[in-house]
Computed example of a mutant assay.
Amino acid sequence: MDNLEQAISLMKEGKMEEAVQFFTAAIEEKPDDPVGYINFGNLLLHMNDYDRAERFYMKAIELDEKAATAFYGLGNLYFEQSKYKKAQKNYQQAMELGLEEGDVFLMLGLTFQHQGHQKLALPYLLRATELAPEDESTLFQYGLALAQTEQIEDAQNIFKKVISINEEHSDAHYNLGVTYLLQDKADDAIQHFDQALTIQPNHELAMNGKAAIEAILNEE
C-alpha cells in the first residue's frame, strides 16, 4: 500500500491527523500528480479547513484543467459555505468533464433548490435517483422537489418508496402526510403524522400538522 492509499484508508477510518502525514508524503513523492492534491483537499474539507482545501483543489486544476473530481470538490466546498452559485458552476464543470456519478447530479439539484429554482432542480434530482435508485436520501430530496413544484401524486409515490426502504424515516412520513392533507385525506395524513411522531417524538412539523387537522375536525 503506497502513501496515497494509506492516507485514504486512514481518512476512511477517521484518523485524520495520521492521514495528513501520508497525504503530505504522497504529494512530496509525486508533486505533479493532481490526485494527491484532490484527496488532500477532500480531507481538509472534511476538517472544515476551507481555505486550505480550496488551495489544494486549485493546485490540482492547475496541474490538470480537466480534473473533474477537483471541480466536484470545489462544488462541495462552496456548498458547505452556502455559496450556491459558485457550487453550481463547479458541479456543472465537473459534469461537463465527464463526471457521471449520482452524487454530482444530487448536489447540483440541491444547489438549484437552495437558490429557489425548484423546477431547474428536478431533472438533476431525477437523474440522481436513476443512478442510485435505492438511496433514500436522494429519493427523499427528489420527492421534496416534486412536492415543491406541486406534483403531489408523484411526490407521494416517491415518499412511499423512501418509507419502503426505511420505515423509520420520520421526515418521509411527515411529508407523505402533507401530500394526503393536500388531497383532503385527513385520516391518512394524521396516520403518517403519528408515525413521524412515534419515530421522532419532537418532530415539530408533524405535531403542528396533526394539531391543525384536529382543530379543524373539532370545529366541524
Rank of each mutant, 00 (worst) to 15 (best):
Ser137Val: 15
Leu182Glu: 15
His169Phe: 15
Glu17Met: 13
Asp154Glu: 15
Thr138Lys: 06
Glu204Arg: 12
Asp51Pro: 03
Met95Glu: 05
Gln148Glu: 15
Tyr72His: 12
Gly143Met: 04
Ala68Lys: 03
Ala26Ile: 00
Gln21Arg: 11
Ile158Trp: 07
Gly116Ser: 03
Asn76Tyr: 09
Leu125Val: 03
Gln88Asn: 13
Gln183Phe: 10
Glu96Cys: 06
Lys119Gly: 09
Ala132Asp: 08
Asp49Phe: 04
Asp135Gln: 07
Arg55Asn: 11
Ala189Pro: 01
Phe140Trp: 03
Ala196Asn: 02
Gln6Trp: 11
Gly177Met: 02
Lys161Thr: 11
Glu214His: 05
Gln141Gly: 10
Glu28Phe: 12
Ala25Gly: 08
Ala19Pro: 02
Thr24Glu: 15
Gly209Phe: 00
Tyr142Leu: 05
Asn175Trp: 01
Gly75Asp: 01
Ile213Val: 06
Ala145Arg: 00
Gly109Thr: 06
Glu29Arg: 01
Gly75Gln: 00
Asn166Tyr: 05
Gln183Lys: 11
Gln81Lys: 06
Val178Arg: 01
His169Cys: 05
Tyr91Leu: 09
Lys161Gln: 14
Val178Lys: 00
Ala186Trp: 06
Asp2Gln: 00
Leu144Glu: 12
Phe105Gly: 05
Asp33Arg: 04
Asp32Cys: 06
His114Trp: 13
Asn166Glu: 08
Lys12Pro: 04
Thr111Asn: 11
Leu108Arg: 00
Gly36Trp: 02
Leu97His: 05
Ser170Cys: 07
Lys185Gly: 14
Gln118Val: 13
His192Val: 10
Leu181Arg: 02
Gln113Val: 14
Leu217Gln: 11
Gln200Ile: 02
His173Glu: 02
Leu74Phe: 03
Asn39Val: 01
Ala186Lys: 09
Thr138Ile: 15
Leu125Arg: 02
Asp51Gln: 12
Glu136Asn: 07
Glu80Gln: 14
Leu182Cys: 11
Val35Glu: 10
Asn76Phe: 07
Glu5Cys: 03
Ala67His: 04
Lys66His: 15
Met1Cys: 12
Glu100Trp: 07
Tyr174Trp: 03
Asn175Met: 03
Leu106Ala: 12
Ala7Gln: 00
His117Tyr: 15
Ala132Pro: 06
Leu45Thr: 01
Val162Tyr: 08
Ala147Cys: 05
Ser170Met: 04
Glu130Cys: 12
Ala196Cys: 03
Gly143Asn: 01
Leu176Phe: 05
Gln93Thr: 15
Asp135Met: 07
Glu136Leu: 09
Ala60Gln: 02
Ala68Ser: 08
Ser170Trp: 06
Leu122Gln: 01
Lys119Thr: 13
Tyr84Asn: 11
Leu106His: 15
Tyr142Gln: 06
Leu139Lys: 00
Ser9Asp: 13
Tyr84Glu: 10
Ile27Gly: 02
Lys15Phe: 09
Leu217Arg: 11
Leu144Val: 13
Pro123Gly: 09
Glu17Tyr: 14
Tyr84Ser: 08
Gly98Thr: 08
Phe112Val: 01
Glu17Ile: 08
Ala155Asp: 00
Asn166Asp: 10
Gly143Tyr: 02
Asp49Leu: 07
Glu168Ala: 13
Glu153Gly: 08
Asp103Glu: 13
Ala87Phe: 01
Lys85Phe: 12
Leu108Tyr: 01
Arg127Ser: 09
Ile38Arg: 03
Lys85Cys: 11
Ala186Gly: 08
Met16Ile: 11
Ala70Asp: 02
Pro123Tyr: 10
Ile38Lys: 07
Val178Tyr: 08
Asp154His: 12
Leu63Pro: 02
Phe193Trp: 03
Ser137Tyr: 15
Val35Tyr: 09
Glu168His: 10
Asp188Cys: 13
Lys185Arg: 14
Ala94Gly: 03
